[in-house]
Design a protein around this nucleic acid. Structure first.
Lengths: 324, 324
DNA sequence: ATCGGCATGACAAGGGGTTGACATCGATAC
DNA sequence: GTATCGATGTCAACCCCTTGTCATGCCGAT
C-alpha cells in the first residue's frame, strides 16, 4: 500500500503538506491541492487509519455487543445502529455474545484494546459492571447495569399499560403474560409490571408463563407455547414480551383451530416487520427502535463528561391490527 | 490506559521482556512471568491492538459488506460470519451497503484503510470490480464479480431442479416463479434456470414475476404479490427466490381464502427460521448457510496465494413441510 | 577456572501518520 | 524598500508496540 511518503514524492511536496491538507490544518493553494489529489488517486492511496488512530488515541470505531443476530428484533437494532454509526463517519464492530458473561467480558476487553470510541451494550448477564473499566463511553440498551452508566430504552411500563387497557376495552377477563425469563436489570421487566398493575386495578389477576433462559437467542419458543396452552386453556387473551413469541402463538392457534381474535386475543411487543406478515396480523406495542439506536449512537459520539449518567425512555404506541 | 512501559515498571522488568512474553518469542522464567501477569492485572492492561497491527501491517479484522441487516436471510449470514470470525480470533467490521454501489466502494476503501485481513462481499451492484484494488483477500458470497475473485454459494441450479421435481411429483401443471429482480452475476439466477429447465423437460412453461429492484432490503413484497395473483390467477404452484416472498404469499393466500397446499403449492428458498413459523409451514430449499459462512471466513484467513481463484458450491436439500 | 547456555536488559529502528516550532521565499501592501 | 502574509518546507518528537543486535550476569557442567 502506498504511504504518505509516496504521495508526497509523487506530488512533489513535503509529507507535512500532505498531512496538513488531509487534516485541514492550514490553507493549501489550489495548484498544490490538485497535484496531491492527483497523486493520491494515481496511487490509490488510503491513509492508514491504524496509524492515525494510534496517534490520536482513539479509533473511529464503535462496538455493539448484542446477544445474537438471529433474533429479528436484534437485527433491527443492528441495522439501525450500523446506519447511525456510519452516518457519523464511524465504523461498527459487531460482537455477538450469546448472552454469555465470559463472552461479553472478552468482547469488552477486545474493544478497549482496539481503542474504540464507545460501546453500546445490548447484551448482558448480571453483575457485569465490576468487570468493566470505563475509559470509553458506554451506554446500555434496554438494561440498567449500574446507576453510573447511561441507559436507553422504550417506556416499557407504559407499553404494558397500553396493552392491558386495550385488552380490557376488548372485554378480556382472563389475561396471560408469556415472556422470556425475567433477568435483573432488564427494562423489559416493567412490561409485566405495567400490564399486571393495570389489570389489578380492574380486580383481575393474570397468569404468567416464562420461557427457558436464552430462548430468545434462537427464537425457539415452541415447547413453551405448547406447555402454556396445556396448563392454561382458560385464558382469553395473551400479551407477550416480544413479537416472536406472539407470532409463534398465532401459528399454534392456527394449527389447533383456536380462532384469533375470536377465542383468543394476542398482543405482542416491539413491532418487528414480522408482526405485519403473520396471519392474522399482529397487534403490538411499537418501540421506536430507530430513535433509540440513534440516541444511543449519538450520545456516545457526543459524550463529554462522565457525569451525565441517566436513563432515557422513549415513548411507545399501540399498533392495532387483526389479532385483537 | 496503561501501556507496556507501565507494566514493565510495575513488574520491575524491561519493556522488551514484557513484549517478548506477550509474543511468546523467548522462554520466560516462572517468577518473571508471574510478576508480569500480576502487573497486567493490577493495571487492567490491554495491549494496544492499533499499535500492534500497525507494526505487523495487518489487523485482525474482517469486513463483511452486505446490503442490510433487516432481511432475515442476511441476518443468518451476519450471525454465522460473526461466529466464525470470532472463533478464529478476528473481529467483524459490519458494513451495510443498502446495495448501493457508492456505499460499497466507500466501505471497501474504509476497510482497506483499516488494514483488514480480508473482506467478504455479499452485496454488490454490477461492475464493481474495477473499483476494487486487491491488496487484501476478498471472497464474494452468492455472486460472481470476476473470474479472479473466489466466490462461495449454494448449488442454486440444483435447488431449482429439486423444487421443480417436487412440484411435478405433486402433480403441478401451471407453475410460477416469483423472484427478486435478476441481477448480473448473482448465483441466484441459476435457481430460475434449474427450475425452468426441469419443467421444460416435461413440456411445461412457466410464468415469471419479478419484484422491483431492492425489495429484499426491506422485505416488502406486498404489491408484487397482489399484482402477481391478479395477473396469474390460473397457476397451481409457485416457487419463490426466497422464503420471505413465500411467507408473504402464504399470508396473502390465508387472507384471500386460497387453500395451501390444496389450491396452491408454495415452495421457498433458503430455509430461514421463519419458514417453520408460518402457517402452513413452508416447504423450501435449504442452503447450508453456516457451512457457506464458515468456508468464506476460513478461506480468507487461510489465504495464501492469489491464484486459487475459484467458485465453490455447497449442496442444497429440499425440506418438505406443509405448504406443498 | 572456563565455557556454554539461559534469562534478561539496553538500545535503536521502525510501522505510518500527526503536530508544533521555526525557517524560507515569493508576492502584496504601503 | 521594507514590513507582512500566505504557502510550504525541515526537523524532531510522539503515539505504542515489536524486533533484531549485542551485552550482561548467573548457573551448572567440565
Amino acid at each position: 500500500m502506498a504511504t504518505l511518503i509516496d504521495v508526497a514524492e509523487r506530488a512533489g511536496v513535503s509529507v507535512t503538506t500532505v498531512s496538513r491538507m488531509l487534516n485541514n490544518r492550514v490553507p493549501i493553494s489550489p495548484a498544490t491541492r490538485e497535484s496531491i489529489i492527483k497523486a493520491m488517486e494515481d496511487l490509490d492511496y488510503q491513509p492508514n487509519e491504524l496509524a492515525r488512530s494510534l496517534f490520536k488515541k482513539n479509533s473511529l470505531m464503535i462496538g455493539l455487543i448484542i446477544a445474537s443476530a438471529n433474533n429479528y428484533f436484534f437485527c433491527k437494532i443492528i441495522d439501525s445502529v450500523e446506519h447511525y454509526v456510519t452516518k457519523h463517519g464511524y465504523k461498527l464492530l459487531l460482537c455477538l455474545s450469546n448472552n454469555k458473561k465470559q463472552n461479553e467480558i472478552a468482547y469488552f476487553n477486545m474493544l478497549k484494546a482496539n481503542q474504540v470510541a464507545g460501546v453500546i451494550l445490548a447484551s448482558n448477564t448480571q453483575n457485569l459492571e465490576r468487570y468493566l473499566s470505563f475509559n470509553a463511553p458506554l451506554v446500555t440498551f434496554d438494561r440498567m447495569l449500574s446507576p453510573h452508566i447511561p441507559s436507553v430504552s422504550s417506556d416499557n411500563y407504559n407499553g404494558g399499560v397500553l396493552a392491558a387497557k386495550h385488552l380490557l376495552e376488548k372485554g378480556c377477563k382472563r389475561p396471560a403474560y408469556v415472556m422470556d425469563t425475567r433477568r435483573m436489570g432488564m427494562h423489559a421487566n416493567y412490561r409485566y409490571d405495567g400490564f399486571a398493575d393495570t389489570f389489578k386495578k380492574s380486580g383481575i389477576d393474570l397468569v404468567v408463563h416464562a420461557a427457558p433462559l436464552d430462548s430468545f437467542i434462537t427464537m425457539s419458543y415452541e415447547d413453551t407455547i405448547r406447555e402454556f396452552f396445556q396448563t392454561h386453556p382458560e385464558i382469553d387473551c395473551v400479551f407477550t414480551s416480544n413479537d416472536i413469541i406472539a407470532a409463534q402463538i398465532l401459528r399454534y392457534c392456527a394449527r389447533q383451530g383456536i380462532s384469533v381474535p375470536g377465542q383468543l386475543k394476542v398482543i405482542g411487543y416491539d413491532d418487528i416487520d414480522m408482526a405485519s406478515f403473520t396471519s392474522p396480523s399482529l397487534t403490538t406495542i411499537r418501540q421506536p427502535v430507530d430513535d433509540l439506536c440513534r440516541y444511543a449512537v449519538e450520545s456516545l459520539i457526543n459524550f463529554k463528561e462522565r457525569n451525565i449518567a441517566s436513563m432515557t425512555l422513549f415513548p411507545v404506541s399501540l399498533i392495532e391490527r387483526e389479532s385483537t
